[in-house]
Amino acid sequence: MPFKIPFMPEQASSMAGEVDALTLYLVAMASFFTVLVAAMVIYFAIRYRRRSPDEVGGSFDNSALLEITWTVIPVLIVLFTFVWGARVAFRLYRPPADAVQYYVTGKQWMWKTQHPTGQREINELHVPLGQPVKLLMTSEDVIHSFFVPAFRVKADVLPGRYTSLWFTPTKTGRFHLFCAEYCGAEHSRMIGWVTVMEPEEYQAWLASVPTQGSPTAAGERLFAQLACHTCHQDAAGAKGPALGGLYGRPVALADGRTVLADESYLRESILNPAAKVVAGYEAVMPSFQGQVSEEGILELINYVKSLPAGGSASVAAASEGAL
């Protein structure tokens, strides 16, 4: 927008302008109806004010034409509003294919973030200008909500599942990050900053932050440490299904259902393995609830995602063989 509209927060993402355009339409629509009704009421109230104590009103008290008019026109307007709003929302919900995934864990009362390259931050998130960013988020305790007004994005962050949101920053600077879902005593201090940097600056910043390696590498260490490989291996007769090439593929379950192996499925299978048992396997895996942190689970998932399809011993093949 060429001029600054008062009371609008800064527009710093690719979607901010679209949301603001929708807002301006809504304000214009509402103003039109408010002024129309206010003018009608004020005019009638003055024009037909009571002039003698005994006066009564007229008998014109219904009109099908008027009723149809003031039913049909609002119906058309709200349907138009709905369509516009839904179009904006679908874009807000669906990240572009080239979005880079970052990780967010909420807990009372801080935001923990992690870069795809492994750098961790607290109550801060640095991202490069112009790069579509997708956040994969979960909570360690209660429900939180990740909200950056300048980007016009918000999504609740829930315990026990992953939610996500995305944005493409279009302006460098520091932008408020708030928790928008009430989460207890220090809710209003569960705030931070998203810093948008020029890509070169961002690379320099990344290099300056010590890291223990990428989440994938960390996940690999954790995988070994928890001895996952004793069961999950590419061998006939293994107790657990092999994990190579698993991510993003449909998995046949013992109860006949098929589920997509996404982040939520992988997470559930680590914490509550009995919930969805792969066809051809026994429910022998213990739960890792309480043994792995939310960050650890994300790292494990990252590692599993990185595993290449392992040929004949892949999950799908194994389950087909068992059937």
Binding site: V19, F82, W84, G85, A86, R87, V88, A89, L92, K154
Partner: peptide, 8 residues
Amino acid sequence: GTLGFDIH
């Protein structure tokens, strides 16, 4: 009620 507006 307008989805794209409510998110913000």
